[in-house]
């Protein structure tokens, strides 16, 4: 009986706590989206400034070390500390260059948040992006990890496609071709970043 009451109490206390968490996570996602809209999508500043703004917003909101490690998969274990650091830096630059420009090119007006799902420490916040001149809205799910009350964005799922899983698969293919040499991947990323940084020729 005592155990039952304890269990009931636990459930009673656990439920409101979870609900509050969900709200917290939704606010986090909304706030992040707002910042990106304000400082990157709608801002009337030069591209370099937008990238800097996005870097600031992005690095604060994400756990980039964890993501970088994940994208390397099994290759992360055999990498030296220096290599891992060099990769994380190149990867971070690449993600920021890619996504700052992607958001910059987003012609929609807003991000509409819909529902939130929880799976242990991970929250999945569903949002819809309305892209002008297309028939269908785009579904973007923000995966937010809540460990130790610290909220971090760890993945974006666009129409069912996980961005970090895509990086992981692509890098795995590159690493396989280079016989598992991490330096090749780092060099390729650096080259790519240099090309992305250069003003576009039209």
């Amino acid at each position: 009986m005592k155990r039952l009451i304890c269990a009931l109490l636990a459930v009673l206390f656990a439920l409101p706590a979870d609900a509050a968490d969900e709200k917290q996570v939704q606010n986090f996602a909304q706030d992040l989206a707002n910042q990106i809209m304000e400082r990157v999508v709608l801002a009337k500043t030069p591209a370099a400034q937008k990238r800097a703004a996005f870097r600031e917003v992005f690095l604060k909101a994400t756990d980039i070390n964890k993501i970088a490690r994940f994208t390397l998969g099994r290759y992360a274990r055999s990498a030296s500390k220096e290599q891992l650091a060099a990769f994380t830096k190149a990867f971070t630059d690449n993600v920021i260059l890619t996504w700052a420009d992607r958001f910059d090119g987003y012609a929609g007006e807003s991000v509409k948040f819909q529902s939130t799902r929880q799976d242990k420490n991970d929250f999945y916040v569903t949002s819809m992006l309305d892209v002008p001149n297309t028939e269908n809205d785009i579904e973007v799910i923000w995966r937010i990890n809540a460990k130790n009350d610290n909220l971090k964005l760890v993945d974006l799922v666009v129409e069912g496609v996980s961005m970090i899983m895509s990086y992981r698969n692509e890098y795995s293919s590159v690493l396989q071709q280079s016989g598992g040499d991490l330096q090749t991947l780092i060099n390729l990323l650096d080259q790519k970043n240099a090309a992305l940084r250069a003003p576009q020729k039209k």
């Binding site: 890619t98 996980s162 899983m165 895509s166 698969n169 990323l189 790519k192």
Partner: peptide
């Protein structure tokens, strides 16, 4: 934006 366009398209499609 991709390093290996083929692998990138493949994973996008499959996912």
């Amino acid at each position: 934006n991709s390093l290996d366009f083929y692998a990138y398209m493949r994973t996008m499609y499959q996912q």
